[in-house]
Design a protein around this nucleic acid. Structure first.
Lengths: 106, 106
DNA sequence: CGTTTTGTACGACGTTCATCGTAGTACGAG
DNA sequence: CTCGTACTACGATGAACGTCGTACAAAACG
């Protein structure tokens, strides 16, 4: 429990990002993180699933290159990789987040 | 074999669209259709899979609301639901298509 | 009519996925 | 050192997915 694997910028694949964003839970996480400036701990984002499932979704987002995760005490701080995503897929994150925000969680 | 079911505009869900776009084959179809003005028949888009699999992918795209399909003789003409998608998720289609075009098929 | 073209329906197969519960680990506080 | 908090690892389970082959259907053309 110390270092977390993140894909390099050039390793981020569009398909993986789209897949990561295609789940309601993960979309909600991204939508929430988009409203924060310095990220948020997993426990701050209230998902209606068990903790195991939560961990799973955060990992999918991290391994797709959508979020960054760093340990801070017993917590794990999540933040969007906004700069990386904007460089690779300009406009994508913004359009997804604003669409997800406009049409609230179903 | 005559009428094809399409979701109404208000039935199109962001998650379903993102999921539909998260497959390399389907992304290739969308990328191709984005370059055409009046759509294209399934047979015009050369996918490296069997016909059955092709049919499957077209159906996923149609049921997610990404493409429109109409019969024309023995062919089926596919076209992007660009206006509907732009209305629901402004900027999404453009950013995905241009990202998919810039980074060629894996 | 028969043939060709184009796409479908159905069933199968192996993989990936979302979900959970249980048990466990790392860290901070007392 | 012990306890609580926050998250993980592992295994299980049922559902969805991508793929295919075979058999079929509808339309166009001879």
């Amino acid at each position: 429990m110390r270092v977390l694997e993140h894909p390099d910028v050039e390793e981020i694949r569009l398909e993986a990002v789209l897949h990561a964003l295609s789940d309601p839970m993960r979309l909600e996480v991204v939508r929430f993180l988009a409203t924060t400036e310095n990220g948020a701990a997993c426990s701050e984002i209230d998902l209606a699933v068990s903790k195991s499932t939560g961990t799973h979704h955060y990992r999918v987002l991290r391994e797709a290159g959508v979020i960054n995760q760093v340990y801070q005490g017993t917590s794990k701080i999540n933040s969007l990789r906004r700069a990386d995503l904007d460089e690779l897929f300009p406009g994508l994150l913004d359009s997804v987040v604003s669409a997800a925000t406009r049409r609230p969680r179903r």
